[in-house]
Amino acid sequence: MNKIDQRDLFPGALEMMILRTLKRQPLHGYALAQHIKQTSNELLQIEEGSLYPALQRMLKAGWLTAHWEISSTNRRVRTYTLTRTGAKHLEREMSSFERMLEGIKRVLSPVKP
């Protein structure tokens, strides 16, 4: 569990990305992994497997629900949907993340002469 956490970019980053992605549309695990990889232009080197512990955690926290269905490609998939609690959590996290990012940017921006 610890090892998986360490592969996160920073604590909670993976979860935020998952929540953000699911906010747009419900997805199953495989699609979710592909989506995150593609949208980050393969910049984020995450093991696909590390998604699942994050998903499990969020299921337990009640941010997501999961149900089995048949995909458009006629496969049995387990689709994750964002719950209201999950959406609220995402909003909170996003705003605090943006504040943090703003702070980091300011510190990292070149000093004006």
Binding site: K3, I4, E47, E48, S50, Q56, R57
Partner: peptide, 17 residues
Amino acid sequence: REFGDVTQVEEFGREMW
């Protein structure tokens, strides 16, 4: 390879639930 350690993920699930 791309998935990572299956057993560990499963173990995590067991501990979780």
